[in-house]
Simulated assay, not measured.
Amino acid sequence: MSDPSRPGDPAAEPDANPPAAERDEADAAPSASEMLGAALGGAARRAGLDPAEGKSTGHVVWAAMGGWRGILESVLPGVVFLVAWTVTYDPDPDVRSGNLLLSLGLSVGLAAVFTIVRLIQRQSASAAIGGLIAAAAAAGLSLWTGRGEDSFIPGFLTNTLYGTAFLVSALIGWPLIGLAVGFLMGEGTAWRADKRKRRVFFWLSIAWASLFALRLVVQLPLYFAGDVTALGTVKLIMGLPLFAPMVAVTWLAVRALYPRTPK
């Protein structure tokens, strides 16, 4: 009578040929790249960036910015902070702390109003809530240090994170743009077999990484100089005015790769 625990006993060894159902299930399991592509593609679709829908470039860029309401929600808190800081600025440290509290309070308060209005109207408030959390975190950090320029640190971290993600993904051959588009167009990662698509997605990801890097290159010297007014102004200029053209270029490049076939 054989010992089932003895090495070499067929009863103790794993089945080298699992049932077909188990093999199919393993093959059907999504890879990490597919799951990431689904997450990125889903976010792009919710933002109105779906090449399969055949919308015009202007419509897509406008949707990506959130229309007039999205623009106001993303720009006005920063404008209010900048104006309040500039108008009430005083070199006296005791007075400056009060100016900082006023400027941050108005900015965060406005972001809170935008969020509350969306919630009351039962509209999607994810972007507004995200903006409110970011504004509150920036205000908390700035109040803790007592330095107005420190309210821009979360933005620096965000640009660093996004820029690094786009750059690394492009350099290792899995550009984030390609993962998102592959999901939206229903081809998964099959685009990697097409040299033209790989090249376009590579350079698009490099372009986005360059945008985030440019923001850091221009804004960090102003941060270390403690020039809050100039830093706030440059941040606004390098925000939507640069984001919108990049969305348009990305959209046009992707549409060129996937031309619509006449029905």
Rank of each mutant, 00 (worst) to 15 (best):
D3K: 09
S5W: 10
S5P: 10
G8I: 06
E13W: 15
A16W: 10
P18T: 01
E25S: 14
D27L: 13
P30T: 09
S31I: 04
S31V: 04
A32P: 05
S33Q: 14
S33G: 14
G37D: 14
A39M: 14
A39N: 11
L40A: 09
L40H: 14
L40M: 14
G42E: 05
R45K: 12
A52V: 05
S56A: 06
T57A: 09
G58C: 04
A63W: 08
M65S: 09
V75L: 12
L82F: 05
P93E: 05
D94R: 08
S97A: 11
L100E: 00
A111E: 03
A112F: 04
A112M: 03
A112Y: 01
A112V: 00
V113E: 12
F114Q: 00
V117K: 03
R118A: 00
Q121E: 11
Q123P: 02
S124R: 09
S126R: 12
A127T: 08
G131Q: 00
A136Y: 13
A136W: 12
W144T: 12
W144M: 15
G148P: 01
D150H: 15
P154M: 07
G155V: 05
F156Q: 04
L157P: 03
T160G: 11
L161N: 02
F166G: 11
L171M: 13
L176K: 10
L179H: 04
F183E: 11
T189R: 13
A190K: 15
A193T: 12
K197F: 11
R199N: 13
L204H: 07
S210T: 09
A213L: 07
G226M: 12
G226L: 08
D227R: 13
T229S: 15
A230L: 08
A230E: 02
A230T: 12
K235T: 15
L240C: 09
L242Y: 02
V247A: 13
V247P: 06
V249K: 00
L252R: 03
L252Q: 07
A253Y: 08
V254E: 07
T261P: 02
